[in-house]
Design a protein around this nucleic acid. Structure first.
Lengths: 189, 189
DNA sequence: TGGGACAGACCAACCAGTCGGTCTCTGCCT
DNA sequence: AGGCAGAGACCGACTGGTTGGTCTGTCCCA
């Protein structure tokens, strides 16, 4: 996407564009900030809303998935254009992405220490797994598709918790709501 | 990466480059073919090597992860530059990536029908989850890092099978080797 | 009347791709 | 054997088009 395309499709002009942004890179930075702020806020809320790592993780994942619904255009543009960002901006962006990553890692570590998450699965790989599976949704998620974003989020939560929780934690009544129902009614896949 | 950089860093010339490739896009296509051929071959081998979906899935994931070790430079270049590929090449590439995706989906479907995989988790989302978590490794995997690629593969397999297998399938003796040991020896994370 | 919001012609840099030319190896004719 | 022709490998100056960014100027409101 060139600056000329941007200004023509948004109905302004080169002059107007560079009146508001120092450079094309700054626009990309602003776009990134738009959605990273959302997930960071939501993750911090989740972190302070409860003391149970399992609950926190569920909330983090659900809001993480939701961002791909709310800001799909922003995210697509970011991943398409971010390769050629100038170092000054990449650094700032990396900081925010790192602090998000660390929130997830911290939550996984807490769950492990609380004895709810299986101790034999390493926190770092699990963290990158979550980031990978959720971030990848920008490649295939279609708003208005057969599954809503909340349904997709619930499936992700089910998958992650089923592989993370210890057998005893899985039995807890208050966590049953995080698992997909395996009722008689077959899923209409 | 410009053509000028490519030829200077590889010690040839513009003329030499365009003698071997029709265009810069063709080079990218060749690079992609290099590693997609590997995973496709391995996945087909896995598919015909056994009748048990669980075993097949384990082999597919393990070889899928391994490609990021064997061809990391190829894969990084591909994801960095593939945005601006001309349609003719994107189509060809998409075909191969789709056939890989379909192998995974088929395997998941078979496991579901065989009663080994939980029927309540949808095949399509699970498939995209696997593709996402594995494909994302190109962003963080470092050859020579603290975990080998086979260890990472085993962790992925453990996570996926733990969330996919039914309780009864998890008990099967021949599948125990796919799970991380939860021995007394604490993981040195 | 002066300053912020915007317009759009313009520019320098850069890029993929071209094209005329050189160098070298091979095989064939004498 | 020696020379020669021609094909393929490779070179790099050049080009046409595109890009991010600038600059002069206009409009409008306080």
């Amino acid at each position: 996407m060139t600056v000329n395309q941007i200004v023509s499709e948004s109905g302004t002009s080169k002059g107007g564009f560079y009146h508001h942004f120092q450079s094309k890179d700054e626009l990309l930075y602003v776009i990134h900030d738009y959605f990273i702020s959302y997930v960071l806020t939501k993750a911090k809320e989740a972190d302070s809303s409860s003391k149970k790592p399992t609950e926190k993780l569920q909330k983090i994942i659900q809001s993480f998935v939701k961002v791909f619904h709310l800001y799909k255009p922003h995210i697509s543009v970011f991943y398409q254009e971010s390769m050629y960002l100038k170092p000054e901006y990449t650094e700032e962006i990396k900081k925010k992405r790192d602090s998000y990553k660390n929130l997830i890692f911290k939550c996984l570590e807490e769950g492990r220490e609380a004895g709810e998450f299986r101790p034999e699965v390493p926190v770092d790989i699990t963290g990158m797994t979550i980031l990978g599976m959720v971030n990848w949704t920008y490649k295939w998620y279609q708003p208005g598709g057969e599954k809503t974003i909340d349904e997709i989020g619930s499936i992700f939560v089910d998958l992650i918790l089923n592989s993370l929780l210890t057998d005893s934690a899985k039995q807890k009544k208050e966590y049953q709501k995080f698992f997909l129902k395996s009722g008689l009614a077959e899923d209409k896949l």
